[in-house]
Write a protein that binds this DNA or RNA. Structure first.
Lengths: 203, 203
DNA sequence: TGTACATCAGTGAACGCGCGTTCACTGATGTAC
DNA sequence: TGTACATCAGTGAACGCGCGTTCACTGATGTAC
């Protein structure tokens, strides 16, 4: 692909180069210099668009949280067709996102950058969290008040289970994988929902 | 602390220096040179005891898996006083290990080194896994055969939940922490066990 | 339509730094006599 | 108990490398007239 002196859309090209590097070699494998090289550009050119290495990485994570939040929102679909189905769908969406956007996922959760250090990162991360919380909130309304755990606790459980499944069983990090990650998450959430009293024991 | 030309037990001193570095600054923060400096020794001295940077890191992880396996085994205690109590104890032990040995934990799970690449790492990791599997196996025997999920699936669920809780809620990575990690894991496993039919709904 | 000019995205060379690793060496330790 | 010597853990200097970052520059682009 030929190009002249000016690139056209270097900013986004750098983001995508970073994504490829991270997806391929892990968050460690990303360097500003290699991202620049992959975008066919001098390292110094990066500074026209980003404050530096961390700023580029933060933008990758930010875009990741954007997509993530949108996918969760889409899966939740305002609690349709039922609170239960919507909740299960958000769990599946979590895993689907991790599988489909490995570069984003690793930038978000494994790159070692602190949200809060980069403006806008924390807020877009909170948005994703909010969707999960809402799904749990809707779900929990189906329970009698006397046996209704806090919604934020339930969303934390599912978030943690999903994250653990991704880290240990979607990538190779947990040794041999006894089960496909999707099946693990599906069955795990199923048993959990039964424990909440939201699925019958025969289900 | 004074010492002469010879260190005495440099090998273990380096391991502990690495542990401190990792616990303090994350797995990224560990370098062979800084570990050597912390042990009051020239970087070249490291090569008397390790093949290189990765070998030192692998030894840290190996010792971690050793402790981890021992703690799980101790918590499981051959299924005493009951299969259920022993299983819950192994879950708590997972989290307790992560809290008490953060350097080891991060070397094991967040340092990006592949088990299998380092002899002995995979086997000692498998040992830890085996204890969890056994705890699940004992547990599952309390269920009627018709509703008995595979033990390896159950241990994978709990492993994933525990890992997720550690990654997201023990460290700051998940944003604001709505609940103490120990409480989250305890309640999560409780609901899960109820879903398996091993705890009564009133529990 | 053609020319002068301002803008600014990207160049290329250079920097200081810390990294992992190597090598010939040195000097403390422990053993043989 | 004292001396000669082998061992080998740690030194210190050096290496090549890739990193993030800076700087004065250059040349493509688009606008004003």
């Amino acid at each position: 692909m030929k190009r002249g002196y000016h690139h056209g859309n270097l900013r986004q090209a750098l983001v995508e180069a970073a994504l490829d590097l991270i997806a391929e070699k892990g968050p460690q494998g990303f360097t500003l210099s290699e991202a620049a090289k992959a975008a066919d550009v001098t390292p110094a050119a990066v500074y026209r668009h980003f404050a530096g290495r961390d700023d580029l990485l933060a933008e990758v994570a930010r875009q990741g949280f954007d997509i993530f939040a949108a996918l969760l929102e889409y899966a939740y679909d305002e609690g349709r067709p039922s609170a239960l189905a919507a909740f299960e769908a958000t769990g599946r969406a979590y895993l689907a996102f991790a599988r489909k956007y490995p570069g984003h996922y690793q930038a978000m959760f494994e790159s070692g950058l602190q949200p809060g250090q980069h403006a806008g990162l924390a807020s877009v991360a909170a948005k994703a969290r909010g969707t999960m919380d809402r799904a749990a909130e809707t779900l929990v309304r189906g329970l009698p008040e006397s046996r209704r755990p806090p919604a934020s606790m339930i969303s934390a459980h599912v978030w943690a289970l999903s994250h653990g499944v991704v880290e240990l069983f979607l990538r190779g990090n947990g040794g041999p994988q006894p089960w496909p990650a999707e099946d693990l998450l599906e069955t795990g959430i199923g048993i959990y929902l039964r424990g909440l009293g939201l699925l019958s024991p025969d289900h």
